[in-house]
Computed example of a mutant assay.
Amino acid sequence: MLAWAGTQNLETPLQLALFDAYFGEAKNPADPAVLREKAIKVGLDGDTAEAIARSDQYAEEVRAAEQRFMEAGVNAVPGLILDGRYLISGAQPADVLVDALRQVAEENAGR
Score class of each variant (00 low, 15 high):
D45Y: 01
G46T: 05
Q8V: 10
T7W: 10
N9G: 13
G46K: 07
L35D: 03
D47A: 05
Q15R: 15
Y22R: 11
L44C: 11
D31N: 15
P29N: 13
Q8R: 13
T48A: 05
V42N: 07
P13D: 13
A5D: 02
P32L: 06
A30G: 15
L18R: 06
A17V: 02
T12Q: 14
G24A: 02
E50I: 12
K41F: 07
L18F: 07
E25V: 00
A3Q: 14
A26C: 00
K27P: 00
I40Q: 04
L10V: 09
D31K: 11
A26Q: 06
P29H: 08
G24H: 01
K38V: 05
A17W: 00
T7F: 08
Q15M: 14
T12G: 10
V34A: 04
V34N: 05
Y22A: 13
F19M: 12
G6C: 01
A3W: 10
A17G: 05
A3M: 13
A17K: 01
D20Y: 04
G24L: 01
N28F: 08
A30E: 14
N28W: 09
E25T: 00
L16V: 12
D20H: 08
T12F: 13
T7K: 15
L35N: 06
T48F: 02
A49Y: 08
T48N: 03
L35H: 04
F19W: 12
A49H: 05
V34M: 04
D45H: 03
R36Q: 11
G46H: 06
P13H: 12
K38F: 02
L10T: 07
W4E: 11
E25S: 01
D47W: 00
A30M: 14
A3S: 11
A33T: 11
K41E: 15
R36H: 06
K27L: 12
L14E: 14
V42M: 10
V42T: 10
A26N: 08
P32T: 02
Q8G: 02
D47V: 04
L16S: 12
D31C: 10
Y22I: 07
L14I: 06
A39G: 15
L16E: 15
G6D: 13
F23Y: 14
F19G: 07
Q8C: 10
N9T: 13
G24M: 01
G46Q: 04
N28R: 09
L44V: 11
A5G: 01
A30L: 15
D45P: 03
K38P: 06
A39T: 11
A3I: 09
A49M: 13
